[in-house]
Amino acid sequence: MITYLDAICEAQAHALRDDPRVFIYGQDVGAFGGAFKATKNLAKEFPGRVLDSPISEDAMVGLAVGAAIEGMRPIVEMQFADFSTVGFNQIVNQAATLFWRTGVPCPITVRLPFGGTSGGGPFHSQSLETIYAHYPGLIVLTPATVEDAYSMLLEAVAIDDPVIFCEHKFLYRHLKAEKLPSEALPIGKARIAREGRDLTIVAYSAMVHDALEAATELAAEGWEIEVVDLRSVKPLDTDTVMASVSRTGKLLAVGESWPWGGVTAEVIARVASEGYGLLDAPPQRLNAKDTPVPYHPNLWAAHRPTVRAVAAAARKILRS
């Protein structure tokens, strides 16, 4: 069986094998194979191309931008998404503006192991897709499946623009697939993860699985829930979302990041402004609480949306 983590490792091996311009740069990614083992054995298989960096997120991204200008296709591994804020300036001001300013593309991929697992606490659990999606010039990907982790990472490396690749730490070892995919939806297309006619739940990354579980729970009560997996939050496939809402008339957007603004707010705003007439009930959104991510499992489990919370929010809309 292949895990989500294996898929990420395999995609990188594939990219390194196929394209001499690809290299990986990050803390502990070399002989050690990365804090999560996402680069396991790659330094050995690709000598000189999988390199440990100093603990310098700003300089790591800056180096990647310079290498991209010189024609390379660097992959930068942030040890945790949380630490990417130290390299934030280089991502949003250097990488994201280069093409607009100069016409020279900046093909870098920044991998962010993100999202909650209990015990991580405030600085090893964050979901940062929203802040990166806010900046022009970046592609922000949030794969929810083993297949997407593989195919979207491969596509990310091939894209000529900076890609923020948000890989969910809970999914790393939790998700398994029989084999790697031979074909995939292109980036920018959302996926209907489950068909239904009563309510659309829009989710991405790990929340897709919570939404699917909630849909199963609600099916026992007679509701048919459609689950849309965004796959990529920027670009956001509004057409697929709108088409789903046109079938169901009801919308719940679910995200693991903080509630102020963000992907769920963007989904609601677009549907409300462009598809107001499609809605039979006020659209709703569900996010984490507006506090830092707590350490203890008792608090952590209540901080992010749970299956129960998703199901409860869905019931409220369905009964309205």
């Binding site: 790591m60 800056g62 990647a64 310079g66 991209a68 024609g71």
Partner: peptide, 17 residues
């Protein structure tokens, strides 16, 4: 200070090439 590591990156890539 943000341009220094970009210069590093170009030099790093050239060495790789």
């Amino acid at each position: 200070g943000a341009m220094i590591s970009v210069v590093n990156g170009v030099l790093f890539a050239r060495r790789m090439k």
